[in-house]
Amino acid sequence: MLLIHCPYCEETLPEAEFAYAGQAHVIRPENPSGETDEQWEEFLFIRENPKGPHYERWRHIHGCGRFFNALRDTVSDRFYTTYKAGEPRPDLSDFLGDDA
């Protein structure tokens, strides 16, 4: 069972309090009706499936209830960091150094 740091509660807590919520930084367009079919398809269906670092969303559903973002390695399952919704995507190189 993973340990996850909730950036709102500022506590590191067992995974059981959290729910996974898919890829992060998928931004719903301001005016969806102005999107082409291709753009809409990209937004709606196309997701990354990386082996390695992944920007993703979690919700502290049994705690403060907030959605937040995380950078997690899908191989080791280790979290590099978590950050509040709306905050900029942290740079991979901050965590991986030259390997990024």
Binding site: A19, A21, I27, R28, R57, R59, I61, G65, R66, F67, A85, G86
Partner: peptide, 13 residues
């Protein structure tokens, strides 16, 4: 409720 919170917190804060 989860879906509503998702849109509210992350798309329309």
């Amino acid at each position: 409720l989860n879906m509503m919170e998702d849109y509210l917190q992350t798309e329309w804060p």
